[in-house]
Amino acid sequence: MSVLIFLDQADGHIKKNSFEAASYGAKLAENLNTSAEGIVLGNVNDDLASLGKYGLKKIHTVKNDALNNFDDEVFTHVIAEAAKNTDAKVIVFSNNFNGKSIAPRLSVRLKAGLVTGAVNLPETANGFIVKKSVFSGKAFANVSIKTEIKIISLNANAYKISEGEGVAEVAELNVEIPQSRVKIKEVNKVTGEIPLAEAELVVSGGRGLKGPENWGIVTDLAKALGAATSCSRPVSDSDWRPHHEHVGQTGLTIAPNLYFAIGISGAIQHLAGVNRSKTIVVINKDSEAPFFKAADYGIVGDAFEVVPKITEAVKKLKGIS
């Protein structure tokens, strides 16, 4: 019996979301008196044994060039085999693009109930109840999974990474790789940026910045903080910023520790994408901007004057001159 955690990789490295999933899965395994095991697909350059520090006892790897690119059907097949092999009772994914693609398929294949967007460890004292985010971050649902095998996909930044001592056993798993039915014609990776979905700090700009030429104050602050940048819908719709930076109801949903909103009024559709952020700072010259109602800290003032001063103060705090 095991809790099996799918560890996502990108370009040969395990992703941060997966450390959260591993920490979550390890704690869950402890609560269920079983062992936490990870599965890694494709060729990875990281030292997998060191993933033991998140509480994983064993890492199963399936090394095959065909697994370096993502394919939900192929991945589902391999993970299903690993689940049988390890007698997995719970399978944990990150609720990211890949997780959203594989978990539903695996749910059907293993007849395993799925809860996506989990924000907390399941209650296992009486049944198996997982708390998940619903209504685009405006509420939570406690969902009972009734099947013998359960699948959980964990929201980004919802569970704190916990590191301890420990070395995982690494073992190669022999699985036949099925033929993919989807041909990948082109892959464009965004490199050199902090991926928005997993960023802990995010600085975001809105229409109040008046034009793409003024984005320097946003990127300067982000750089000083070590934050990712994002924007509101009108900004990406006007092509001031690339569309993958758009957060909100129709864009990306994020939940960083700190969300800095500059010149964004805070329409409800925007809030739906960011309201799970732990701390929200709003800088807006309009004191009536609805965003202040959802904020933890706010400054009513001209962003062009205030933000560079915040950047200076951050640099001072961090000892960057």
């Binding site: 990108a10 993502f70 693009f97 041909k183 990948i184 464009n188 990776k189 991926p195």
Partner: peptide, 10 residues
């Protein structure tokens, strides 16, 4: 996809 975009043919 995670970390970027992809063009698929199916």
């Amino acid at each position: 996809i995670e970390g970027g975009e992809e063009v698929d043919v199916v």
